[in-house]
Design a protein around this nucleic acid. Structure first.
Length: 303
DNA sequence: AGCCAGGACAAGT
DNA sequence: ACTTGTCATGGC
C-alpha cells in the first residue's frame, strides 16, 4: 500500500490570541503526555491520535503581559482548531475560575502561581491507556523511549521533522489496539518494555474485542469506570485514574503516584482540600509538577 | 555502582 | 484487609 508523503496545497497557519491559562512548555512536559518534543526551530510538535486519525501538530507561542498566550498552529485551519485542538487543550473550560478557587489553599496557591498555564489535556483513550500501562514503575525519559519505539515499530510514518539536536526523524502514529491485539507479548521485544509487554497485549485485546469500551468510560461515574479498567491485567488504581483523567475527560479522577503520595503525607494528611472538589485531577497536575521540581531546585542550590 | 522510577500482582501474614 | 518480594529495563 502506497503512502502519500506529498502533502496538501494549503499551508496556512492559524494564530489564536489571548488564550487563558495555557503554557505549552508546562502543559506538554508535565508527565501527562509523552510524545511532544521540540523541533530545531523551538516549536512543539507531535503526532496526536484524534477522532480523525493521527494528526501532526506543530505550534509555537508567546506570552502576553496579562498572562494570556498567543498560540500559532502551523498548517492548521479554523475547523481543525475548533474540532480537534480546543477539546485537546480543554480550551472551553474556565481555568482561571478553577485556579481562583484554589487560592484559599496555600500550597495550591504556590503551585498555581509558579506553574500557571498547565492544562490537563484530553487525549485519545487507547493511547492514554497504553501509555500509562507503560509508565508503571518507570521513569519519564524511559517511558518516552518505549512509546517512541512502539510507534516506530508498529505505527505508520506520518511526518519527518528536524529535531532539536538537528537530526531528521520520522514521527509515527500510535498503533491501534486492533493491530497490537494480533501480536504476542514476545513480538513487543523491540520496544524493551520488559514485564509490561503482556499487559499491553491484554489491554489491546480487551479493547479491540469490545470487552472494554473506552468511549463509554467518559459517561460512567468514576468508580464504575475504574472498575472496567481494572479488568485489564497490569491496570491498577493509579493507571486507571490516569486513563480517566487524561483520556476520558474525567477532571475529578485523582491518580496517586509516588509523588502525589508524598504530597498527601507531607502536606495533606487529611486529603485534598474541599476547593478541589470536582477538579481534583487538575489540582493533582499542578501539585505533581510542583513537587517533582522541588527536588530539582534543592539539588541545584546545593551545588 | 547502586538506587529508583507517574505500579501491579501474587503470595504471605 | 494489610505487608512484602518480584517483576525488566535503564536514567541518573
Amino acid at each position: 500500500m502506497g503512502r502519500n508523503f506529498t502533502s496538501k496545497t494549503c499551508n496556512c497557519n492559524l494564530t489564536v490570541k489571548n488564550i487563558h491559562c495555557l503554557n505549552p512548555d508546562y502543559t506538554l512536559d508535565c508527565g501527562q503526555s509523552f510524545r511532544w518534543e521540540k523541533t530545531s526551530e523551538g516549536h512543539w510538535c507531535a503526532v496526536v491520535s484524534t477522532k480523525d486519525g493521527p494528526k501532526y501538530c506543530e505550534l509555537s507561542f508567546s506570552q502576553n503581559k496579562d498572562g494570556t498566550s498567543d498560540i500559532t498552529f502551523y498548517d492548521c485551519d479554523e475547523k481543525t482548531f475548533r474540532e480537534i485542538w480546543v477539546p485537546y487543550f480543554d480550551l472551553d473550560r474556565d481555568y482561571d475560575a478553577i485556579l481562583r478557587s484554589y487560592q484559599k489553599d496555600k500550597y495550591l496557591k504556590a503551585a498555581t502561581k509558579e506553574y500557571y498555564g498547565i492544562r490537563v489535556t484530553n487525549q485519545d483513550p487507547w493511547e492514554t491507556l497504553c501509555s500509562f500501562i507503560i509508565s508503571q514503575n518507570n521513569n519519564i525519559p524511559r517511558i518516552k523511549g518505549i512509546i517512541e519505539r512502539l510507534c516506530e515499530n508498529f505505527g505508520e510514518p506520518v511526518k519527518t521533522i528536524t529535531t532539536k539536536e538537528g537530526t531528521k526523524k520520522t514521527l509515527c502514529s500510535f498503533p491501534s489496539a486492533e493491530k497490537l491485539a494480533k501480536l504476542e507479548p514476545e513480538d513487543l521485544a523491540p520496544i524493551r518494555a520488559g514485564f509490561r509487554n503482556k499487559y499491553i497485549i491484554d489491554a489491546a485485546r480487551k479493547t479491540a474485542s469490545g470487552e472494554i469500551d473506552l468511549e463509554r468510560l467518559k459517561e460512567l461515574p468514576l468508580e464504575e469506570a475504574e472498575a472496567e479498567l481494572l479488568k485489564i491485567k497490569g491496570v491498577g488504581p493509579k493507571v486507571a485514574q490516569c486513563v480517566l483523567l487524561y483520556g476520558c475527560r474525567q477532571a475529578d479522577a485523582f491518580p496517586q503516584d509516588i509523588w502525589v503520595k508524598r504530597i498527601l503525607s507531607e502536606l495533606y494528611p487529611q486529603g485534598l482540600p474541599p476547593c478541589t472538589a470536582g477538579t481534583r485531577g487538575i489540582a493533582q497536575q499542578y501539585l505533581f509538577h510542583w513537587r517533582r521540581h522541588l527536588d530539582d531546585t534543592e539539588k541545584g542550590s546545593k551545588k
